[in-house]
Design a protein around this nucleic acid. Structure first.
Length: 571
DNA sequence: GCCGTTTTCGGCCCGACTGTTTTCAGTCG
């Protein structure tokens, strides 16, 4: 599927046009990029089936963009992009990715300092050259240095939402080789950590050479870092590193355990092994020189008198102690989820209709969903005023009847700076479910933000506090807020805290989920979907819930509809 | 560049914040 590649090209064109100071076009390209990325179908299939005409049928794609997509699919490049790149100062589009640097500043920096890309910018900022430029000062120089750190961090750790499908895809491809018995992703991907440094795939095979040949020749590979008899490392085109290891049957489980980590969990586990008179390594569990276990992970945990510890819990945060006592939680599973309570449509900033979203949800086997488009203050997202909201609710009822899935009438309502909500209570009263979230003034002081959020949580109509920390991975820190105070208020007021399963959000983190549940809160795992494709992210959210030791009974969207409705009616 | 129960041409979000200024430009969401 080439959607992501096409979207990337369109975004690059948008950046370069923006630097040029061209009006409107950048937004048009970005809109098109977003739809293409969120398309339920491979863009190349759309083109093969219906040609340019079908491409133009994609919302946001017209004559010109359709032609560029066609050009890319046919030739693998877009001349217009090359032309723009040639004209712009070198590396200027890269500078745009630094938070705080927009098109104007990027152009000034690139031109006046004569720097190519982020490295040059860092050097110039560190040398104190940035502050001397007109329009810049000491503060903006510091902001740039801080922004560069964020960009760098983003380079080194990739989103689980990107790495997990890739790891699975690699494993699936390897398993198709005749000599391969099984191939399994390990590492932080397996632990469902929200960001990962690299992808590890472990392979059981009689023919290691064939596996090495196949793996290093995959089309995603940019270059081969190391290639050995049973182990190879490559760098993928998107910057992610991937390792593959071929193992013996007798050590496969031990290796899977070892390479799944975390490091801290492994250290604690090895310590326990020693205590029990064993030695644990990636090759197996040994008593003296004698091999005791290693074919399967389960055998190792059993021999150490532990119940099996699911990968998501392996952080040495008390899971080994709990496993000793047989007191591990029965973690929530993807199959427990009965619905998705945070979804957008074209009524605000989504790209699919309510009906398309509802059908997709039904197809996933959900019993119910909530449609929750933005409230009026969220202007950038085409938030709805009261009048449009009423029409929206009517449309939801119509689609509910037509599609045959329960659709809760909802809204993602802005929490205004004073802690009040973006709709009056008389409006909120008409909704089946009210999500409340902060979308402005992220930089408020902690005390202010805490008061603001707690006030919203106390509103009698609020059911879910969405993306409670506001962080966006690699882009934005969460806002300063006293989460314990928020959790206490949420628990008391029967407000569930959301795990926003959108790949770049995934807040709450596992750690915070655990805190929330311990302080008596319920959790909602939602995808915050803006396109049909996004519904897939549910498993990422479930992963974070599992990392937070959550059981199904703590997650409101595992409730049967009746029970959920009862919870929503609460106050 | 895209789009049309707004007009096939002329709109397209715009207010808040921040830092650099001395009344405002640039960035963000």
């Amino acid at each position: 599927m080439k959607n992501a590649e096409v979207a990337k090209i369109l975004l690059e064109i948008a950046d370069l046009l923006e630097v040029k100071g061209v009006a409107w076009k950048p937004e048009a390209y970005r809109r098109a990029a977003r739809t293409v990325e969120g398309l339920g179908e491979a863009i190349e299939d759309v083109y093969t089936k219906g040609g340019v005409k079908a491409l133009k049928g994609i919302s946001g794609v017209g004559e010109s963009i359709a032609a560029k997509i066609e050009e890319y699919l046919k030739t693998g490049r877009v001349r217009e992009l090359a032309r723009l790149e040639k004209k712009a100062p070198k590396g200027v589009d890269e500078l745009l990715h630094v938070p705080g640097v927009g098109p104007k500043k990027a152009l000034v920096l690139a031109k006046k300092l004569n720097i190519a890309g982020l490295k040059g910018l860092e050097a110039a900022a560190k040398a104190g050259k940035v502050r001397l430029l007109a329009g810049f000062g000491k503060k903006s120089e510091e902001d740039i240095l801080r922004g560069l750190e964020i960009v760098k961090k983003g380079k080194s750790r990739k989103l689980l939402g990107l790495a997990l499908p890739l790891a699975r895809e690699f494993a699936a491809r390897l398993e198709r080789l005749r000599s391969v018995e099984k191939a399994v992703p390990a590492g932080s991907v397996r632990r469902m950590k929200e960001t990962v440094g690299d992808i590890d795939v472990l392979v059981l095979s009689r023919d290691a050479k064939k596996v090495m040949d196949f793996f290093t020749a995959m089309p995603e590979v940019q270059h081969v870092l190391a290639r050995g008899g049973t182990r190879s490392s490559v760098v993928l085109k998107d910057g992610l590193q991937a390792d593959v290891r071929v193992l013996e049957p007798n050590s496969f489980g031990a290796a899977l355990q070892y390479f799944t980590g975390s490091k801290e969990h492994n250290v604690a586990l090895r310590r326990r092994a020693i205590m029990k008179g064993f030695k644990l390594s990636e090759y197996g569990l040994f008593k003296g020189k004698k091999w005791v276990a290693g074919r399967a992970e389960e055998d190792i945990y059993r021999k150490l008198n532990l119940s099996y510890i699911p990968p998501e819990l392996r952080e040495n945060q008390g899971e080994i102690e709990a496993a000793v006592k047989g007191k591990l939680p029965k973690l929530v599973e993807r199959g427990d989820i009965r619905g998705d309570l945070h979804m957008h449509s074209v009524w605000s900033d989504g790209v699919a209709s309510i009906e398309e979203m509802a059908r997709a949800a039904k197809q996933r086997g959900y019993e119910y969903i909530a449609m929750t488009d933005h409230s009026k203050s969220e202007r950038i997202a085409n938030g709805m005023d009261e009048k449009r909201l009423l029409r929206y609710l009517e449309e939801i009822e119509r689609v509910e009847r037509k599609v045959g899935i329960r659709i809760l009438k909802g809204s993602e309502v802005d929490i205004l700076p004073d802690g009040s909500l973006d709709y009056a209570d008389s409006v909120l009263e008409k909704l089946d479910i009210v999500l409340a979230g902060v979308h402005s003034r992220f930089k408020s002081a902690e005390k202010e933000m805490t008061t603001r959020i707690c006030a919203a949580v106390e509103n009698r109509y609020v059911n879910v506090l969405v993306h409670p920390t506001g962080r966006i991975i690699n882009q934005r820190e969460g806002y300063a807020v006293d989460l314990d105070a928020v959790m206490a208020a949420a628990g008391k007021n029967k407000v569930a805290l959301e795990i926003d399963a959108y790949p770049s959000r995934l807040d709450l983190t596992g750690e915070n989920v655990r805190r929330a549940i311990e302080s008596g809160c319920l959790i909602a795992i939602d995808t915050d979907s803006h396109a049909v494709e996004h519904l897939r992210s549910m498993e990422l959210g479930v992963g974070q819930a599992r990392r937070g030791w959550a059981e199904a009974k703590s997650v409101i969207n595992t409730f049967p509809l009746r029970k959920l409705e009862k919870f929503l009616r609460k106050k």
